[in-house]
């Protein structure tokens, strides 16, 4: 299991406009390795594999249905950094990082303070050779009026 905790985030709420929904967005999630499942907690930096979904601070979960083993030759699973030239009209490389959205409305409403720290526990699927599969560039907390 891999544990990662964010820096404190300000809760994006407006006193005159209660939000109808809140999403946690993980950006540029890499999926070139084995698949995994992840649990998300708010202000539960000590959460572990025994914490579960009924615990205070549980916000949601997601799976990353990932590439798995590479069957190709060397370089097959390395997305190019950029198109070869302006006329490169090929599809994006299959391993281009993705965005993941987790709906967290109920969990965010339960947060009493003005900041939250997001903890993500990632559980690699059986047979995985990568104990720390969770890799992404940033996360965003978005509320919708």
């Amino acid at each position: 299991m891999q544990r990662w905790t964010s820096q404190p985030l300000p809760v994006p709420r407006h006193p005159q406009a209660p939000y109808a929904r809140a999403d946690l967005e993980l950006h540029d999630v890499e999926h070139d390795g084995p698949s995994y499942h992840a649990l998300v907690y708010f202000n539960q930096a000590d959460a572990d594999e025994n914490t579960g979904r009924a615990a205070p601070g549980y916000a949601g979960s997601f799976s990353v249905f990932a590439h798995g083993r590479c069957w190709g030759d060397r370089g097959h699973c390395d997305p190019p950094a950029e198109p070869l030239h302006p006329f490169d009209r090929r599809h994006l490389h299959p391993l281009t990082p993705i965005n993941i959205t987790v709906e967290v409305t109920r969990a965010l409403r339960a947060v009493a303070g003005d900041t939250i720290a997001v903890t993500v526990l990632a559980f690699p699927a059986l047979g995985s050779d990568r104990p720390a599969p969770l890799r992404f560039s940033r996360l965003t907390l978005v509320t919708y009026d």
Partner: peptide
């Protein structure tokens, strides 16, 4: 589409075996 794909991902990983990875599913 975003919501149903997340359910879809969960099912793939729940099944396990070769269903759990895109390359072999």
């Amino acid at each position: 589409q975003t919501a149903i794909e997340q359910v879809h991902d969960n099912v793939h990983v729940w099944v396990g075996g070769i269903m759990q990875d895109i390359q072999s599913a």
